[in-house]
Structure formats: structure tokens, C-alpha cells
Simulated scan of single mutants.
Amino acid sequence: MADVPTNAVPTGELDGIERTLNLSAAPEADLTYGIPVAPPGFKSGFVGLIGRPNVGKSTLLNALVGQKIAITSPVAQTTRNRLQGILSLPEAQIIWVDTPGIHKPHHRLGEILVHNAQMAIAAVDGILFVVDGSAPAGRGDAFIAERIPAHSPCIIVCNKSDLAPADAQTRQAHLESYQALRPAAPVIWVSALDPGSLDPLLKATIELLPGGPYYYPPDLVTDQPERFIMGELIREQVLLHTREEVPHSVAVNIDQVEETPNLTRILATLSVERDSQKGILIGRRGEMLKQIGQAARLQIQKLILGRVYLELFVKVRPHWRRSERTLGDLGYRAET
């Protein structure tokens, strides 16, 4: 199977905003890459999603593109790699850049994640500062707000509006606590679990963008290859099935993908730091690894729209999160 970006599936409409390309608006196309010529007045650009860990950035990204491309879990710092989600509309192409949650790092992996998130902040055309609207601003939010360049167009996105206080006075106090961090930025309430709430955010984001071309073919929803998404879907199930220290200590590597007309065979290795973590992942008589594999297989089948055979192996790599060489082998590198 070639490492090509994941193709989009039909996404329908989102509260009046058509989420498929109107090809009649851009009749000319680059036949080599499938990239249309943008019509007059077309807007495009890169928009970073930043915020504390666990404010719902990845869930919001999936909702914005209309398809699952980023893994989610209750575990903090789920996102490790910068992931771009692509939304092509008749009037604009938005490239959403999901970043790892900015936090105080405790090892080299954490340093790389925070560094890459800060690099993304500096490189985008606009920023969605995603916060947890169900609680007031805290020190972590202030820490991130200080790192948003003063000149960067910014929207404060109060996510989890479905969990926000019903009391209007308390809700207003939460809003004002976030407004104080970036006084000139508009505040928009959304729930990543309710696609119908995203229409105002999409319209406000388009207003931030400069005029520009299509950067990607309009049928793509992410710039990441299928192998990357497969590995993330496996890691998601590790996060959902294990607790304690295991989720943060696991890396997934796709070793082999063999595709036939009727079946895709995938071999993957889960790397952990200690023998005790290996025992937890495998479980009694292999039951935990079996559950993780079965759940991941179902998710990958949805991704590739075909039958999957998934075989998982567990390997101990002591202190891999602190080893520059091992991090590089596993795909974690500081961006320049």
C-alpha cells in the first residue's frame, strides 16, 4: 500500500455551509496533482489549533473536517505529532494544524512536542486558541496566551459549551476570564460534539484568511499518509484500554503493510519502556493485546474501507522517550 494521504469521504453539509467542492466554481485544474485553479476572491491558509492538553482540540479538528483523522482519548497529551486537517469549501480552503498541548515537559519527547507546537504557532496565518469553556481560565491558559504572537489573528474558541454552566452570570464570568488573556480576539462558543454549533466558527475563520490558492487537492482531508493514521488508531486503543503510566510510554510503529484485493495485512510493534508495561499491554493470556488489536482493526477498516488482518507485537525499549536516536527512529523529531 502506498503512503498517500487519506482520501475524503462525502461529508454533506454543516448548517448551511456546503462541505464539498463546487467544481463549476473552478473549472481549470492542474491535471498532474488534481489541484484546481482558485476562482477570484478565493481564500486559503493555515490555522493553528492550540490550547492546554485535553481541551478537545483533536475532537474539534475531526468535527471541522467532517471525518476522523485525529485520535482522541481522556488521557492528557494524546496528540504527539503535528497533524493537518484539510477542509475545502467553494469559497476557501482551510488547513487546520492540530498541535500537541503545550505543557511543562519532563523528558526529551515532551520537549520536542512543545517545541513543534510553538513552531506551528509562528508559522500559521491565524490561530484558534481552544479553551475549556466549562471552567474559567487558569494558569495554563495564560501561559499559552503569552506565546501567541501579538500580530497573529486569533479567535478564542470556548469548547465544551454543552458542559458550560447554565447560570448566565457564571458563564459570562468564564468568558470574561478568557477575553482578558487576549482582549482583541473574538470569542466563539462551540461544542466539538455538536457539528451544528461550528457554523459561526467556520465563517469567522474564513474571514481571517488571506486570498490564496488551493494548497491541496480538494478531495484530501489530511496531509498524513495512511500508515501514520493506522499507527495513531492503534495508539488510540492503547490509550483507551490502559491506565496509569502505560499510555504515555507507548509508541507505535507500522512495520509492514501488505495489500491484496480482499485483505490488508498489517504488522505493527508497540514500544514500551519497562517489562512491567509490556506485561500490562499483553495482559493475562494475551487478553489485553487481543482487545486492543480487535478494536484497532475495526477502526482501520473504516479508514481503508476494506478487511484488515492486524498483528501486534510488544517490544521493550528502555527510556525511549529520553533517547534522541530512538525518538528519531519512532518518527519524533524537532522541527526547524
Rank of each mutant, 00 (worst) to 15 (best):
V4M: 05
A8E: 15
V9H: 13
T11C: 09
D15E: 15
G16Q: 14
P27A: 02
D30K: 10
D30Q: 10
L31I: 13
G34P: 07
F46D: 06
I50P: 00
R52P: 13
P53G: 11
N54H: 11
S58Y: 07
T59S: 14
L60N: 03
N62K: 05
N62C: 08
V65N: 00
V65G: 03
G66F: 07
G66R: 04
Q67A: 01
Q67D: 06
K68L: 11
I71L: 03
I71K: 08
T72C: 01
N81D: 10
N81F: 06
I86F: 09
A92S: 12
D98E: 12
T99M: 03
P100L: 01
P100D: 10
K104S: 07
H107I: 04
A117V: 00
Q118H: 06
L128P: 04
L128I: 01
F129N: 04
D132A: 08
D132N: 11
D132G: 04
G133M: 05
P136F: 11
G138V: 12
G140R: 04
I148H: 13
P149N: 04
I155N: 09
V157N: 12
C158Q: 15
L163G: 00
A164I: 05
A166K: 15
A173M: 03
Y178E: 10
Q179W: 04
L181S: 05
A185M: 03
P195V: 05
L198Q: 10
L201P: 02
E207K: 12
P210I: 06
P213H: 10
Y215S: 15
V221S: 00
T222N: 02
D223E: 14
D223K: 06
Q224G: 05
E226N: 12
I234W: 13
I234L: 10
H241D: 05
E244M: 03
I254Y: 08
D255I: 02
V257S: 06
P261M: 06
P261I: 02
P261H: 03
N262Q: 05
T264P: 00
L267W: 09
A268N: 11
A268S: 13
V272T: 06
E273N: 00
R274S: 02
R274C: 05
Q277P: 06
G279I: 00
G283W: 01
R285Y: 09
G286H: 15
M288S: 02
M288A: 09
L289P: 06
K290T: 12
G293A: 02
Q294N: 14
Q299V: 00
I300P: 15
Q301S: 15
L303Y: 07
V314L: 07
V316M: 03
P318N: 00
P318D: 03
P318Y: 00
W320I: 00
R321N: 04
E324V: 07
E324M: 01
E324S: 14
L327R: 06
L330H: 04
L330F: 11
A334I: 08
